[in-house]
């Protein structure tokens, strides 16, 4: 039997909202340590990796590892029947479940839904646990704003790191521009900008994907960008007390 209860069901809805335009069908994996998901977008340029630890749930039980194939679109249809303040419980009964049950619970209403599961043959990538040569922490809303602004000028955005901070730049047909974000150690953790740069990097990415990734900014006030030269970048949103959502994006290769 598998059971996982979100005290804050709104959080689960935010996670689904954050990934729904990146991936269509996903395998949700549950085991004794928690729930995880790894899926690529159809063009195999971006990868979503979610980890929710067992300790972050109000109630968690998983006696045997299981894989639940879900359509994100259908999952969202069911989640629309829940309130943002509901507690949400996911449950399966059988060893090889064909449905995933949802209970939405508020002060004055309990709703039950069953979502049909699918058998998905999905490619899994082995993402190495590497050290990145530049790691930047900055407010997620600021990153969203920069991507939106620069994305108007060109479809590719450049990112350059140095000990002084991080620089975003674009060169398009209409002209070019850059935005430098300065390091600060303000007392407000959500406004802090930190750069750990062992080796500076200069990389270029399709801004369209960043604009999709930024839907996850509702999960955390800070975003962590981890980069190494000529390697995929990782954008991480820490989900407080539960785990994290990591979004990987392959770099553009300039010839």
């Amino acid at each position: 039997m598998f059971e996982a209860k979100f005290e804050d069901g709104g959080l689960f809805k935010k996670i689904v909202e954050a990934i729904k335009e990146l991936v269509k069908n996903v395998n949700l994996e549950a085991n004794g340590t928690g729930i995880s998901l790894q899926a690529m977008d159809t063009s195999h340029v971006a990868l979503v990796a979610l980890q929710l630890n067992e300790k972050g749930f109000k109630k968690y039980r998983c006696e045997k590892s299981l894989t639940m194939g879900l359509s994100i679109e259908n999952l969202q249809k069911i989640l629309k029947c829940s309130g943002n303040d509901d507690q949400i419980t996911l449950r399966t009964q059988d060893e090889e479940p064909t449905t995933l049950s949802f209970t939405f619970e508020s002060k004055n209403r309990i709703s039950e839904f069953q979502l049909n599961l699918m058998s998905l043959d999905q490619e899994q990538l082995g993402v190495p646990d590497t050290e990145y040569s530049s790691v930047v922490r900055m407010p997620s809303n600021e990153f969203t704003k920069i991507c939106r602004e620069l994305g108007n000028i060109n479809e590719a955005i450049g990112i350059e790191t140095s000990k002084e901070g991080i620089k975003f730049y674009v060169k398009g047909d209409i002209g070019e521009g850059q935005v430098s974000v300065k390091i600060n150690d303000t007392e407000k953790p959500e406004e802090r900008v930190e750069c750990e740069v062992d080796e500076p990097v200069n990389l270029s990415f399709a801004v369209r994907y960043f604009n999709l990734f930024n839907k996850a900014s509702a999960l955390s006030s800070q975003v962590i960008l981890s980069m190494s030269q000529d390697q995929p970048l990782v954008i991480e949103y820490i989900i407080e007390e539960m785990g994290s959502l990591k979004l990987y994006l392959a770099p553009k290769i300039n010839d």
Binding site: S43, Y248, I253
Partner: peptide, 14 residues
């Protein structure tokens, strides 16, 4: 202006 690389170029399949 360059082309978009794919994740398989960096991460192995498991």
């Amino acid at each position: 202006t360059g082309f978009q690389s794919r994740l398989e170029n960096f991460f192995g399949k498991t």
